[in-house]
């Protein structure tokens, strides 16, 4: 650092900040990992062997499935095939993805010398991982089913807002918590709704990484997940495509966006190292 005048000093500090930010970027690894984990779910969503006229219903599913999906599950592109194996896969995959991401940032800090905080990522991911397992089933059983959803929803909004303000936090914290509760509810209803956990995690990473490329791909991924969540309602069985493509499209498309984001981040990191070793 050589400058002594205010402008030169501010410019040098901006350069230092940008360099530290670039050096700590490591989002490409979680992006690639989650892309692989999403693709790994495809076999659990392929339609089973089915003679003409057969159908699937949640009525015959075990009690655990009903606990995990207290208000049932919606349609998806390839049709409706409720399966506990899907839930088990996602539970394991999301836990592995979460732990690996936290470990990755700590390991990378040891090598690079500058550490990204994963606190916000860990907080939001753990919240949307735990809530669908315990919070949504318990709230549905004890609260929403007995009071009716309009009254129960109003009570939840008031309770969260009051608790947030009493703990002297900002109102936006209450809004964020309510949005996460909504995500946790959708997660139990939407087939492959676990993609929403990854959306929350990826947006959390974009927030802590403060990288333009990471933010762009995080929002592209969010838009793609929103599209595949809405798509079965509007485009069910249209256009006519092979069944396997329908069965995998709502997983492969978001996975492709994350994979391209991860590869782009890796190339950007490699290019930076070439310019300033």
């Amino acid at each position: 650092m050589n400058s002594t005048d205010p402008k030169g000093l501010l410019d040098e500090l901006a350069r230092l900040r940008a360099r530290a930010r670039d050096d700590r970027h490591g989002y490409w690894a979680p992006f690639l990992l989650f892309a692989a984990l999403i693709v790994g779910a495809v076999p659990f969503y392929l339609r089973p062997e089915c003679p003409p006229g057969c159908s699937w219903s949640s009525n015959g599913m075990p009690e655990l499935w009903h606990w995990l999906h207290p208000t049932g599950q919606g349609m998806r592109i390839g049709g409706y095939f409720p399966s506990l194996a899907q839930d088990f896969y996602w539970l394991a995959a999301l836990a592995v993805g979460f732990l690996a991401t936290v470990w990755w940032y700590r390991w990378r800090a040891g090598r690079v010398g500058v550490e990204t905080s994963t606190r916000l990522y860990a907080q939001v991911t753990l919240f949307v991982l735990a809530l669908p397992l315990l919070g949504v089933p318990v709230l549905s059983e004890l609260f929403f089913n007995r009071l009716g959803w309009p009254l129960a929803l109003a009570a939840v909004v008031v309770a969260v807002t009051a608790a947030t303000l009493l703990s002297k936090r900002k109102l936006r914290t209450a809004v964020a918590i309510l949005l996460l509760i909504l995500v946790a509810h959708f997660l139990t209803v939407i087939p492959a709704g676990q993609l929403l956990v990854i959306v929350v995690g990826v947006l959390g990473l974009a927030w802590v990484e403060r990288s333009t490329l990471c933010t762009v791909f995080a929002w592209l991924f969010t838009a793609t997940v929103a599209l595949v969540v809405v798509a079965p309602i509007w485009f069910y069985d249209w256009p006519p495509l092979p069944a396997a493509l329908y069965d995998s499209a709502d997983l492969v498309l978001p996975a492709a966006v994350l994979a391209i984001g991860g590869i782009s981040g890796l190339v950007a990191a490699w290019a930076r190292r070439k310019v300033s070793p």
Binding site: L9, L16, R17, G113, V114, T116, R119
Partner: peptide, 15 residues
Amino acid sequence: RLGILTIAAEAKRVE
């Protein structure tokens, strides 16, 4: 010292 604080403010911790 400004440089140290600027870099430290950008990360959880710096080596």
